[in-house]
Amino acid sequence: MMKQRIYIIAGPTASGKTAAAIGVAKRMNAEIVSADSIQIYRGLDIGSAKPSVQEQCGVPHHLIDCVDIEDRNFNVAMFRERASEKIREIASRGKNALVVGGTGLYINALTYPLNFSSAEPNIERREELSKMEDADPGCLHKMLSDIDPATAQRLHVNDRKRIIRAIEIFEQTGQTASAHGGDFSNARGEEIEFEPIIAALCFSDRAKLYERIERRVDLMIENGLIDEVKAVAEKGYDRSLPALQGLGYKQLLMYLDGECSFDEAIELIKRDTRRFAKRQISWFKRDKRIHSFFADKETADGLVQSLYEYFMNPELFQGDAPETEQEGEQT
């Protein structure tokens, strides 16, 4: 029995995934399933670059605005369950599913046979670990290195949420997070439900991507991001909520709480977004199934056409790797 194909557009933040995906979706009779870990939250619109109804151009979008900000329990296993259900539903209507986003773990959840741990979230322990990290930055990553070096090597030292989750899994089960579901090479040869065809947008000159990031942050501020964050702050949400760790929200909440100036908050957003994009690029480079397209070397229409041709005939692109990008110096 043939597996259902799913088409995926991945890539770093600000690379133009949304616009390209809408163009491709129209060409191939597809609906879009978001793979973005912040766009899932209701009320976090501007800072997550969530496409408005107008920007969606009539293309149905799924898994945006589906989780409340105060929800601490939404995780990658839940994403896979909801996304898989939507993909099957889309197929039942005779349409293609186009998965779009930059959250690498979400994409891996659909394209690798990951076995998610049954360890239940322990809010009190998470808060305790978070306070330890506040008092001694980097201590949690060191703790994780001692118990699960494979996962520690994969996670950035500042990725507090996932570091805490990995420690939590070990403490509750006695097994490492990597043992529960880190077989990204699929050495065991396990089956997955879908057949993924994966494209990623990249830039021949990373400095151009960093310029796009800075322009987008400025545009978000012009479009009312500070008012959006103020509205969130006025509701009194706990600042440690996963939703509020998103880029733009965390830094502007720091400003509203008097921890930095407005200008400092903006520079932090730009710096942290550049660093996040760099980690996203590294994540997707590891996956040899992905075919990359240089977004800065094609027109918008040309990029849509190239992606469409790849999705329709991926076998024609095998071995046709793009040139190596030039890394920008700014971090």
Results as ranks from 00 to 15, higher is better:
residue 202 C to R: 15
residue 191 E to D: 15
residue 248 G to Y: 05
residue 185 S to G: 05
residue 242 P to R: 08
residue 190 E to Q: 15
residue 195 E to K: 14
residue 260 C to I: 09
residue 263 D to A: 11
residue 206 R to N: 04
residue 225 L to D: 01
residue 185 S to V: 07
residue 206 R to I: 14
residue 215 R to L: 09
residue 246 G to Q: 06
residue 220 M to C: 02
residue 219 L to G: 01
residue 203 F to E: 07
residue 246 G to C: 04
residue 252 L to E: 02
residue 244 L to D: 05
residue 201 L to D: 04
residue 231 A to K: 14
residue 256 L to A: 05
residue 199 A to M: 12
residue 255 Y to C: 09
residue 207 A to G: 12
residue 265 A to F: 08
residue 231 A to N: 13
residue 211 E to Q: 12
residue 241 L to A: 10
residue 193 E to K: 05
residue 243 A to Q: 07
residue 182 G to R: 04
residue 209 L to Y: 03
residue 225 L to F: 04
residue 265 A to L: 08
residue 234 E to F: 01
residue 249 Y to N: 04
residue 185 S to Q: 14
residue 202 C to V: 10
residue 237 Y to K: 04
residue 182 G to H: 09
residue 228 E to I: 06
residue 177 A to N: 04
residue 199 A to Q: 12
residue 236 G to W: 10
residue 257 D to V: 04
residue 214 E to F: 01
residue 238 D to Q: 11
residue 201 L to F: 13
residue 251 Q to V: 03
residue 192 I to M: 14
residue 256 L to K: 08
residue 186 N to Y: 10
residue 244 L to Q: 06
residue 198 I to Q: 15
residue 191 E to C: 12
residue 251 Q to N: 05
residue 184 F to I: 13
residue 254 M to H: 09
residue 231 A to E: 14
residue 198 I to W: 07
residue 223 N to Q: 13
residue 224 G to Y: 03
residue 195 E to Q: 15
residue 261 S to L: 08
residue 188 R to E: 15
residue 214 E to P: 00
residue 201 L to R: 03
residue 187 A to E: 14
residue 242 P to W: 08
residue 225 L to R: 01
residue 177 A to M: 12
residue 185 S to D: 15
residue 211 E to W: 03
residue 203 F to D: 01
residue 255 Y to F: 15
residue 222 E to A: 11
residue 177 A to W: 09
residue 187 A to F: 06
residue 209 L to T: 01
residue 249 Y to D: 01
residue 229 V to Y: 07
residue 262 F to W: 06
residue 249 Y to Q: 03
residue 182 G to A: 06
residue 235 K to S: 05
residue 218 D to S: 09
residue 236 G to V: 09
residue 233 A to C: 06
residue 259 E to M: 12
residue 205 D to G: 01
residue 264 E to A: 14
residue 254 M to F: 02
residue 235 K to A: 05
residue 243 A to I: 05
residue 235 K to I: 04
residue 204 S to Y: 10
residue 251 Q to W: 05
residue 250 K to Q: 10
residue 239 R to G: 03
residue 219 L to R: 12
residue 258 G to H: 08
residue 214 E to T: 07
residue 209 L to E: 09
residue 231 A to W: 03
residue 204 S to G: 14
residue 194 F to E: 13
residue 253 L to F: 03
residue 199 A to G: 08
residue 240 S to M: 06
residue 218 D to K: 04
residue 203 F to N: 02
residue 223 N to D: 10
residue 238 D to G: 03
residue 242 P to E: 08
residue 207 A to T: 14
residue 237 Y to I: 04
residue 232 V to T: 12
residue 200 A to N: 10
residue 218 D to M: 01
residue 216 R to V: 00
residue 189 G to W: 13
residue 238 D to H: 10
residue 260 C to T: 13
residue 216 R to H: 06
residue 230 K to Y: 05
residue 260 C to A: 11
